[in-house]
Design a protein around this nucleic acid. Structure first.
Length: 743
DNA sequence: AGGTTAGTAATTTTT
DNA sequence: TTACTAACCT
């Protein structure tokens, strides 16, 4: 289970040509191998290069075997990239590495020590849907008024506790929450005990349980301490308390821990991340060395200057100054564009994208980064109208789609019949006539007999208790599962799953569905079955999906990327649009209301992250009027606009709003934030008032039409005012005739 | 059991 | 405005 203590004794003398390509500070970060090291890596300073080179260097200098290095990232993407780049330096596939996300590594460890926390090694990892359903069950059983105390709130409390490494037993009265009349802790306790009954762990548990094992089992800890000679950590500023504890335990003996991060890019405090972890590093690891990477190889000088000037307004930074590392760093000033309303903003962005495209900037190197998800819609509509291809990053991911989750639940039941939550999900999908009544009967039986839900259900289905119709359907389902399980051994997991999805009636359900999304869903199911084939076993596939909720997009066509600022961290583009810089939206009202200065500073870091995504050009904009939930509101320019260095930016746009942008911030207005605004007052002359499409004549089949969101299409069916339209870009949709006009 | 309708709430989301 | 949920009807 554990590798030998001794590292390879006489390694071949490495030709360290990989070191030559580093600048002095990077090289120092790579070559300071022993003892604690903090690498403060500003945006675009070659952080990943340092991390991967350091990893390779440790191996090539013979300091450790591949399996004696622990390398931790936050995202699967980062882990994958590191693995590939280490392999590239080594010149061979990097195998047997402890390289992965916090959660994947914890899952791997926890499977070996699950018994210490009351699980078996085959525990299932729950997705967010499962978690919520389980918590609701627990709260329901505890007679909590879920109207007054929404389960989401309770879930947030539980997750924060888990982020802090607090098992129910470790919560002191002082740390208890007053949620649901001081019952938070007991609900948490009940939830954890239900998870244990189900032999399941949620995401937070992977970290929490493994840390608990290390805390309470000295022999296990000693094994890992002996094994891991070096520890590498990416994005250290985003670690939460339990991750910090886990790292400290694993690195405590040899103290060869290298954390790479950037306090200026800490934007996940609301998810439990503690910037303090990085700010405190020297205290935690006395004698730690700190290396700063400040040479930026990504952006032009004005972009860097704007970002640096902005972030300098934050207090309590470790302090870093980005300097342009490129020889060709001169570039255009950062644009700050003032606009009348959000529609003009979308139009302007669209036009500028087209203009830039003509100048040779690829759509694939263009991004629109927004503060909140709903903002993407206005841009989507505009891009559709202009026929510019785009992709929304971070929307519903492949594995989060309902049909994929359903299919996954079928597979989970197939693999492990005791997976109650998965069974509950599919027992009546497609409809088998199982309602609340039948379901609660199953639950009661399962509890009384002490067997999994599926077993109890099958017993019920074979007796007379259940209604005849549902009984027949249930029996068919269980006969199916027996058949498919036999198939699993005989024809392999791909055939078994494909057969299961067909014979259970699941694919048929979507074939019968007449909605516009149904064909896409069937496509997704096909894609899912194809993906299973890439794994040797069904089990392996399930583990992968539980931990890797990512979709490998076929990025063949160059598309404009639309995403939130959070989703953009770690990415870079030639041309970046940063719209919606308005008080209340960015910085967001919620951050202003709830977290005071700390939150405001995090918003500022978000702005910093946004600007530093740009290689050649950044266009920041704000609108004077914005539609919020259907009605228009007046908006004040973001205070961040006033924090940009005048010399490095160029202001454009209409007079009044521009002046306001220069003053910046809410200080000149009483109250601040988005105030109420009368929707119909539109300044004469400036903007043509759009006419409502006349409802005069009915649309006929075959009519070519235009839709604000979906663009151009042709009517394929018409039923009074309901139309079915086959859109050129967006596919078949059902729309009301009042939303389209004749083209 | 299942579909319909009224009411309500609405950042950010690496795993 | 939309999307989701919880009562409500058939």
């Amino acid at each position: 289970m554990f590798p030998p203590d001794q590292p390879p004794s006489s390694p071949p003398a490495p030709q360290a040509d990989y070191l030559v390509r580093l600048n002095p500070e990077q090289r120092e970060a790579v070559e300071t191998v022993d003892g604690p090291l903090l690498v403060l890596a500003g945006a675009g300073t070659g952080k990943t290069r340092v991390l991967t080179t350091r990893f390779a260097h440790i191996l090539m200098s013979g300091r450790a075997f591949p399996n004696q290095v622990l390398a931790v990232t936050f995202t699967n993407k980062a882990a994958k990239e590191m693995r590939e780049r280490v392999a590239a330096i080594l010149g061979r596939p990097a195998e047997g590495l402890w390289l992965g996300t916090f959660h994947a590594l914890c899952a791997r460890m926890l499977r070996r020590h699950a018994e210490y926390v009351g699980l078996t090694s085959s525990f299932t990892i729950l997705d967010t849907d499962d978690q919520m359903r389980l918590l609701k069950q627990v709260m329901d059983a505890g007679v909590v008024d879920m109207k007054r105390w929404p389960p989401q709130g309770m879930m947030a409390v539980i997750q924060r506790w888990k982020d802090r490494g607090l098992t129910p037993a470790r919560i002191t009265p002082a740390e208890d929450s007053d949620y649901a009349n001081n019952r938070a802790r007991s609900i948490y306790e009940a939830y954890q005990s239900r998870l244990r009954d189900l032999n399941a762990a949620d995401f937070g548990d992977l970290m929490l349980h493994m840390t608990e094992v290390l805390r309470t089992q000295p022999d296990v800890l000693a094994q890992y301490n002996r094994m891991f000679r070096y520890v590498l950590v990416d994005e250290y500023q985003d670690t939460n308390t339990v991750q910090y504890l886990w790292l400290r335990l694993l690195a405590q003996e040899r103290r060869n821990i290298c954390c790479v991060g950037d306090d200026d890019q800490s934007i996940y405090s609301w998810r439990g991340a503690e910037v303090e972890n990085i700010l405190r590093f020297e205290k935690d690891f006395p004698g730690a060395k700190i290396v700063r990477l400040e040479a930026n190889y990504r952006s032009t000088r004005p972009i860097l200057a704007a970002a640096a000037h902005l972030i300098a307004k934050n207090e309590g930074r470790l302090g870093k100054t980005l300097r342009a590392g490129r020889n060709d760093a001169d570039g255009e000033k950062v644009r700050v564009v003032s606009l009348w309303d959000s529609e003009e903003e979308a139009r302007t962005v669209g036009e500028r994208i087209e203009g830039a495209q003509r100048k040779g900037i690829s759509l694939g190197e263009t991004a629109i980064l927004v503060r909140a998800g709903f903002q993407t819609r206005a841009f989507e509509e505009r891009l559709i109208t202009l026929g510019i291809p785009y992709r929304v990053v971070g929307g519903l991911k492949f594995y989060e789609r309902a049909e994929v989750r359903d299919a996954m639940a079928y597979m989970r039941v197939l693999h492990q019949p005791s997976d109650d939550l998965a069974f509950e999900r599919i027992v009546n999908t497609p409809k088998r006539g199982i309602g609340d009544g039948a379901l609660s009967a199953m639950h009661t039986a399962a509890r009384e007999q002490g067997v999994p839900l599926a077993v109890a259900a099958e017993r019920l289905a074979r007796t007379e208790v259940m209604r005849a119709r549902s009984r027949a359907a249930m029996r068919e389902l269980f006969d199916g599962f027996h058949r498919w399980r036999a198939l699993l051994g005989k024809d392999g997991h791909v055939v078994a799953v494909a057969t299961m999805l067909d014979e259970s009636g699941y694919t048929e359900m979507w074939k019968q569905d007449k909605s516009a999304e149904a064909p896409g869903r069937l496509e997704n199911l096909k894609e899912l079955v194809r993906a299973i084939g890439e794994f040797a076993t069904l089990e392996g596939f399930l583990e992968h999906v539980a931990l890797v909720m990512e979709n490998d997009e076929n990025a063949a066509e160059a598309r404009v990327s639309l995403m939130t600022l959070h989703a953009a961290k770690g990415l870079e583009f030639d041309l970046v649009f940063l719209p919606g810089w308005e008080e209340g939206l960015f910085p967001h009202q919620r951050a202003l209301d709830e977290g005071g200065t700390k939150s405001l500073e995090e918003e500022r870091r978000l702005a910093y992250v946004g600007i530093t995504r740009a290689r050649k050009m950044a266009v920041i904009s704000h609108a004077a009027n914005r539609r919020v939930y259907g009605n228009w509101s007046a908006a004040i320019p973001s205070r961040f606009l006033a924090e940009l260095p005048e010399g490095e930016i160029e202001r454009e746009g209409s007079g009044a709003s521009q002046r306001a942008a220069m003053l910046g911030g809410p200080s000149v207005f009483a109250g601040g934030g988005i105030s109420s605004y009368k929707p119909r007052v539109i300044e004469a002359g400036a903007w043509e008032v759009k006419e409502r499409p006349a409802r005069a004549e009915a649309m006929r089949v075959g009519q070519r039409v235009f839709h604000q969101k979906f663009g151009y299409g042709r009517v394929t069916a018409a039923d009074d005012n309901r139309l079915e339209v086959d859109f050129e870009k967006a596919g078949a949709k059902r729309v009301l005739d009042s939303f389209v006009e004749k083209a």
